[in-house]
Design a protein around this nucleic acid. Sequence first.
RNA 1: GGGCGGUUAGCUCAGCUGGUAGAGCGCCUGCCUUACAAGCAGGAGGUCGCUGGUUCGAUCCCAGCACCGCCCACCA
Length: 914
Amino acid sequence: MADCRPVADDRLKLLEERTRYVPGDVEPRVFERWERAGVFHPEPEGDAAENFTIPVPPPNVTGVLHMGHALNSSIQDSLIRLARMRGRRAKWIFGTDHAGIATQVKVEEALAAEGRRKEDIGRDAFVERVWEWRREHGSQIVEQLERLGASLDYGDERFTMDDAYARAVRHVFVALYEKGLIYRDNYMVNWDPGTRSAISDLEVEQREIQDTLYMIDYPLESGSGSITVATVRPETMLADTAIAVNPSDERYTRLIGETAILPLVGRRLPIVADEYVKTEFGTGALKITPGHDPNDFEIGRRHGLEEISAIGEDGRMTAAAGERFAGLTADEARREVVAALREQDLVSGTQPYVHDVPCSHRSGMRIEPLISLQWFCDMGTLAGPAIAAVKEGRLRFHPESPWTGVYLDWLEGIRPWCISRQLWWGHQLPVWYRGDEVHVGAQAPAGDGWTRDPDVLDTWFSSALWPFATLGWPDDTPELRAFYPTDVLSTARDIIFLWVARMVMLGIELTGELPFTDVPIHSVIQAPDGRRMSKSLGTGIDPLDLIDGGPRPPVYKEGGEFPAYGADALRFGLLASSSSQDVRFNEERVKQGRDLANKLWNASRLILLGVEEGVAPSPDAAEAPEDRWILSRLERITERTAAALDRFELSAAALDLYDFFWSELCDWYLEMAKPRLYDESRDRTAVSATLLFCLDRSLRLLHPIMPHVTEEIWGFLPHVSTDRPTTSGGSGGREPPDLLPPVAPGRGGEGSASERGLLAVAEWPVADGSRIDDEAEELVGRVIAAVTELRRYRDEAGVKPSALLPARLAADGYDGAAQHLERLARLELRSEGDAAAAEIPVPGGAVQLLPTDAFDPDAAAAKVAERRERLEGEIERLERKLANEPFVERAPAEVVEGERSKLAGYRADLERLG
RNA sequence: GGGCGGUUAGCUCAGCUGGUAGAGCGCCUGCCUUACAAGCAGGAGGUCGCUGGUUCGAUCCCAGCACCGCCCACCA
């Protein structure tokens, strides 16, 4: 074996024998090499401007990888790998989120299976139970991300409940409290009876339900009749404290200031005037329940009305509801109240009513609005700088529209954020009480008699600190200096408000810096049938089943198993099929990715097993026009790929690379190169060096998107010393377990043929414009067009694919490339001979087919006629267009000129057809 | 109720600043051509949702309409 092929014999044998790429055999092994070499961990050196950082949206500790993670991870990994290849210290901050409610619910369910409730074991034991759960289940998502090839800094994992992180959270709470931005208030909140906790506005979703609208008569105190109100929640009448009408509503103006008597209760209700009341809705008279309706709450405060809580936090009626109803659930109370009213003949009508009601995003239960003492964060002052950052272009969404507007609209109408949660799992508030005293501080106050607030913080509160708390903030750590502010935050649109905007607000407020500058928003992937992907609906697809094979979920009626497409295939498929638009999951794109991996593998076999030994990749060895052509095309794809990736257009990059590699490199260049490659009688150095260079460059360009297969093939390449030592350190140096070439200690290639570095840290190519060769592109473009034309003709004329047709080239502009036309169109070119039996127009002239048994011109006559008709149609159209004076006068000159030459071309073609 | 997005080949989707459209899969025909049948060659298939308008010219710009979807919102 020659020096420059530092690949062990049995590995070469594998390359020779394997005609199919098997991702399952390769991917885990390649991943292990990266990890061992330490490529995922950059040392905290340099500053944030030179380094590149992405904070991963931390998955829930107990979560499993779903399609959204797979897509987002593919995007982030591509960007991180790109940056790493560009020589930047690339840190992909890794960690998981404690996910308050989600995790607590899971552990509660586990307890329930044992027949116990969390109250049975107490708070401390319960929290310990959650930690245990995390130790058991927390690693699953990590393994899944690894299987995907995500180059996260796994060794530096964070958890939002780590001690250091918790310190940061307490620090923030105290700081914002002292600034007056966090405060405690008795206010109307969204009470979720399912989780028995208050939740924020963002965790409420509207669901349409079928309801009944009741018309209830409230007698007037004066005895002169009654006033009728409409409600869908009769049980809340027990907490009514007024009736409101619109001041301009003539039906009721005389009643304003009067008093009605609340049925069943007997409370005196003032009739007040308020603009809020719509005259045309219901009866135009609105019962006011400040304790259980957000609107009524506002109206109540405006009019100084009493606030009565008739429904408690347990969802049952309180003593304030009266003896008859206390203890009933709200639903029971409704039936009872209606029954009682009917007895007194006070229900004057009902009608079916479909409307949206607020429900808990978490538990699904209908929100019970009630007044509660909770902690709030005032967002108004935090929003200003976050708005300015976007308006001044310092923070950019991709695509800009519509997300910039969505973000700004929300911030401009922002409301206070209820941050306290009545849960056990989470960051307990750093707040202590003793009588009327309140202490807010990182530590418990001195002295006896203090009790700590049992509530915890909304999970999103701690998530909002993610980009800096993970790096050691508020301490001044090397990590913080090296990696903060970060660069990119990639996510789907559903957490722009919940997370992105809050990170921006708190990041600016606390660190004085924007936590990141670019926010690519990616597709939400729907099930193949267009519904949401959801496990419970049976519409979910497990990414791991696509990678390693697994059962098709119920959305696929045909059932069966997914083939083991591999991680690279899934990555390609997701990137290629996603944009900013929601998309249906498209298995075909994953298949396309698998096929591309396979194509890479086989094209590499052709090249690696065929090239002259001892030759290194080089772009300077071109000897034929097709060499200059492919090198030129290579520079163009290099330029386009970098541009697309830098604009976060991963889909365009993936598809463009596919097209280049498959259609240009494999279909045309490899075919043109074969004669030289296979001719052992001549010096094959030039073609070998060029082929190797094409492969080398293709692997680099594809690596961010398909890291495993490219890394695997890279290991077979003889090396050329274009790689610089990498900036970040690494552990490396241990004994490799397989037959792969050793990874140099300190990683990165120093360039010796036997000590090649990993592709993961190889240099990202920069397009070299000097290799753009318009002449070669023109020439080879002609050959391609001519070959295609001839193949079509042959096929239509029924010529056997294997037959060689005698022919004469009667066209200009094929110097130095006619042999490709001859070979790829299966011709035998002659200069002399009989009269042409058929003439096929090609760029620059025609190819004349000479009479032969293999070819019957009559068989193609019909097809020729069809073609003539098409041409005539085109010619007529163009003639009309060019005869149209306004067009010739007003259209740009080059457009008109283009149409003219098109017309000339068609005319020439038609003439040749005879 | 307000806002946003979508409607392009049988399916899933591309299409930058206007010059009559592309990909993958599927389909048809022919090839086991010494990298790859997860392949190769060729082909069929679209009045770019509808109606107007601007323009020499519109899938692309404007207006209206029709469906589909999403987000926001305190009408009982």
